[in-house]
Design a protein around this nucleic acid. Structure first.
Lengths: 214, 214
DNA sequence: CGTACGGTGTTACTAGCGGTAACCGAAGTA
DNA sequence: TACTTCGGTTACCGCTAGTAACACCGTACG
């Protein structure tokens, strides 16, 4: 009977948890990363202690929220990354998927990338702020794995793949962040430029000799 | 007489300002980005309102502090970037300089990269949190300028250079961040791997055909 | 029928943050 | 001596994250 009772309770708890997460989602979508626990509780129609009973602390809630979106984004990226196409096409498709995602919901994206942990809540320290941007790390690791699986890099391939995974993800992230703020070109142009960079066009280009007015 | 008096005052104010900045530096170096205004004031041997008289708000102080280190780092990078050597050498030297800098003072580096602005001080909004990581942006723009000056990219070179500038800086940043946390390899190896990536080794590598157990 | 109990929820609080108003005392000047 | 001005402090505001203590409500058990 203990099990059945616990099942009931857990079901109810899970439903509540999902409701709370959706409320938190709405608030984050509206207020950005600085959404307060009070605001989230109000949006959910309850008060703070309930949030704390469900998620422990703000880091817990943020982690749960981040995991959701992170998983969704990673699924999309995996699909683009594993498609049966040639490498350049896959790379461009992945970049495109990422950019489309961050463009579709910038607030969520900013929340995932810059959780803005102050950790000023007294002496308890902050657990989640330690890993500054879990999404970036996870994307880096996954990309590394795909590279190592599908590209022949010779000796030391694992190390190399990991460096490249994190490097490429960082490139994508920074360029996307900048692009999202300034919109200096179309999405397709950005994708092509980045792919060109990865394809060694920087190394292949010649030195510029005749500067302006020289 | 107004001018002379103001000079005296301004000299004194500048000295104070430098003292305060150095105190703030010490605290940030010790406590990381979540250093509080109280702590900084205490370290400087004064009280909060003086800090606010000098820097306006926390964003102002952080901006002043960041500008200092940012300028120093950018100077080093410019030196490496403008050296009279071939491109690959310059790229490796620049990466090396950056990694050495973030390794030397990780706390300062984390402060510069993740200012963690909550902007929760009432209704006044937050000015500095708007641009999340000014250092990255500045590095991206500077690199873009150097690329555009020295590399012949054909038509659309300015756009391309800017995308590459921000992309490369992001690559460097993400890889450095990951490397600083996990230390999976030596600094020289990291530099070489990243340069290899920029030199198109990803595109040049062949597909892996015989996976493990396949 | 009454009673003790676990779960759900609230109010009211602590401690610390960024930021500010109002006061205080020591200089210089008429 | 009286008045202003500047460096500095105390004491406060409104906000945050997080918590302790209490209240309600259905249910099992004597």
């Amino acid at each position: 009977m203990d099990t059945t009772q616990r099942t009931d309770q857990q079901r109810s708890a899970d439903r509540r948890r999902r409701e709370l997460l959706e409320a938190a989602d709405r608030v984050v979508l509206r207020d950005g990363p600085q959404a307060s626990m009070n605001a989230i509780a109000a949006e959910a129609g309850i008060t703070k202690p309930i949030l704390y009973r469900h998620f422990g602390d703000k880091g817990g809630l943020y982690a749960a929220l981040a995991t959701r979106h992170t998983d969704a984004l990673l699924d999309s990226l995996r699909a683009a990354l594993d498609a049966p196409a040639d490498r350049r096409e896959r790379v461009e498709s992945t970049l495109d998927t990422y950019l489309a995602a961050i463009e579709a919901r910038p607030q969520v994206y900013r929340f995932l990338m810059h959780p803005s942990e102050g950790g000023q809540g007294g002496d308890h320290g902050f657990d989640v702020g330690k890993h500054s941007a879990p999404l970036l790390r996870r994307m880096g690791e996954e990309l590394a794995q795909v590279i190592e699986e599908r590209v022949d890099l010779g000796p030391g391939s694992q190390q190399l793949a990991r460096v490249w995974g994190h490097g490429i993800v960082g490139m994508m992230h920074a360029a996307g962040d900048w692009w999202l703020g300034e919109r200096p070109c179309s999405q397709a142009e950005l994708v092509r430029s980045l792919a060109d960079l990865l394809w060694g066009r920087l190394a292949a280009a010649g030195d510029r000799v005749g500067g302006p007015g020289f």
